[in-house]
Write a protein that binds this DNA or RNA. Sequence first.
DNA 1: ATGTGCTTGTGAAATCGTTCACAATCTAGG
DNA 2: CCTAGATTGTGAACGATTTCACAAGCACAT
Lengths: 210, 210
Amino acid sequence: MHTPTRKTAEPTVRRLSLYLRYLEAFEQAGRGTISSGELAQSGGTTSAQVRKDLSFFGSFGKRGLGYSTHELTVHIREILGLDRQWRLVIIGAGKIGSAVAGHRGFRDRGFEIVGIFDADPHRVGHALGGVTVSDVRHLETEVKRLRADMAVLAMPAESAPEVATRLAKAGVHAILDFSTAQLEVPSDVTVRSVNLALELEVLSFALVNR
Amino acid sequence: MHTPTRKTAEPTVRRLSLYLRYLEAFEQAGRGTISSGELAQSGGTTSAQVRKDLSFFGSFGKRGLGYSTHELTVHIREILGLDRQWRLVIIGAGKIGSAVAGHRGFRDRGFEIVGIFDADPHRVGHALGGVTVSDVRHLETEVKRLRADMAVLAMPAESAPEVATRLAKAGVHAILDFSTAQLEVPSDVTVRSVNLALELEVLSFALVNR
DNA sequence: ATGTGCTTGTGAAATCGTTCACAATCTAGG
DNA sequence: CCTAGATTGTGAACGATTTCACAAGCACAT
């Protein structure tokens, strides 16, 4: 596997993630090999796209035959960094935080929830998915102690920027943000936003311009 | 406002949605006008990008002055189709479904939750955010009766494709899917997927390639 | 009324991502 | 060992999106 010369396109990474899901299904089904065309069908793209995506990272296939499902699974896992355990904290024990905490399948894919935080004293101390909710006041020390790699922000937009800054200071380099806030973080911290209202608005646009 | 000649780029629509959020804040703060540069800063883009995005739909600004916050707000709302009420159903009353149902701010933005469905008899009949959970067996008739425009799928991937098909038949043309399934729907139905595991995997990739 | 300073709207250029098309190379079968 | 059939890997073409750069237009001060 050769590391891409410079930064890889995000759409490529997203598709790799999808390919991985389908590969796992194929492997379960006992298929030893798979062609770029078959992978493309599962992921709603084209065979050329699949091959191009993979070619950024190496040559994993055999001409005339396709890809070994098992080997390609291992390769993609390695590319995405899923060949290790990631330690995850959730900030906000409300509806969304609980949903994330209760989402089985995270742990299976290497994401271990090691801490949950909330500002509401009524929530602190209660268990959520086997993890006890801590007071967000102790965020820095706890996050360091837990050696968290990533954080999920499931809190009101008002407090999100401050918490993001504190997380960055505590050594968290990846944040998944469900709030609608615009986070200001150091350049070595990656932030991804999931904004439910925005998704509905894109759907609204699609309906109007149908 | 001139309707764009053909389909508008999705990134443009997403940014419009972000601009709208910042415009509302600016309007709240009593700012009468705003420049493309200021809007760009809020949305993490460039002033040229803002002007280009808006130019697909018309000329809303005044040279030398900028945009009227109020007028631009109204224009973007109209472009996105937020100048009307959308009727929303949620399929799946589990963790994610509850989070969506309880999300205040949807209603404020014109998305009214008119129905919630679940397959689990234990959940049917209970109220969630002021709406009683119905049995998913009655999906078609209920969705038609409620005149739903959009649906949120918050259910296991196994049953999602079937439900998506039934929704399409019942006249729903926009679906926001939280499952990891690949949905097959008629071309006049727009589907958007939000996949939590995938987002974490993109973050994982970012961490590994930092 | 004119000049100054600022900001828009938009072609043109640059960049980025996708699709095409085909040589290279593999397997399997005779 | 050789041929037929399949499928990869990848430059090159294409298409889409972003950035650049500047003329045009407006407000305000003088």
